[in-house]
Amino acid sequence: MFAEIFGIPPQALFGQLLLGLINGSFYALLSLGLAVIFGMLNVINFAHGALYMLGAFVAWLLLNRLGIGYWPALLLAPLIVGAIGIVLEKALLRWLYKLDHLYGLLLTFGLALIIEGMFRHWYGVSGMPYPIPPALQGGQNLGFMFLPNYRAWVVVASLAVCLATWYAIERTRLGAYLRAATENPVLVQAFGINVPLMITLTYGFGVALAGFAGVLAAPIYSVNPLMGANLIIVVFAVVVIGGMGSILGAIVTGFGLGLLEGLTKVFYPEASNIVIFVVMIVVLLIKPAGLFGRER
């Protein structure tokens, strides 16, 4: 059908690029959530990976305990994870805002250990399958490759949510308050805006994004207590590469690095695990603030 591209059969190339795009969708959703939370709370949310895992587990529990399917779960799981996030923020995180930012990292690291440890205790480390919803089973033959419907949906859904978040923050009035409060919370509060409430809701929204990503991931990867643990470190590298100054930057970097990882799997599979870390090193050497970042 098609000639080989750089000595690689096109099916393999496009297949890996698609996988890369899928991974990129998750990198983008998670790094976006991290960036939103960091902007408002100055906390790097180490629990982000654990809450992503929690999103997948909530979807799995909804299906297997209550018989609630994929589509309601896509809405319910982020809401539940977001609510848990709000409780965590209200009960624990808010005591640390006046301290060094590193304490926020340490606290959320402890939370990640607790959440992951509990699910590991209850469900072991073997993954549990989550079926692809009937409407998205099967796939399209595009001529040069086979495109499973669900994977296409993941990319589209992630892009849509990312862009909606970008629009909400950069183009709406609420987003303007948010950006203003990121710059100068005291002044914004003086204008009569409830900044503590905004902080709480921002954290809730950020972790809801992680929960959403978890539900999207459930049918692709098996639902597994450790699914977020290693992902979060890659996402940290993504965040360092992109810099946390810009929402759009987080999205572009997430998808871009996913694609790059996919390409590496084709041409030099041994390095696919570490390519993002290598990119991080190169970026740090050339532009320490990150591709889209500001020194702060």
């Binding site: 301290l99 304490y103 690291f109 607790i114 992951e116 440890g117």
Partner: peptide, 19 residues
């Protein structure tokens, strides 16, 4: 008892009240 949960809990307690 799951070890990581206990370790995580100590982490949280140390950060909150026992810095």
């Amino acid at each position: 008892l799951p070890v990581t949960v206990v370790i995580g809990a100590i982490f949280v307690i140390c950060v909150l009240v026992f810095r």
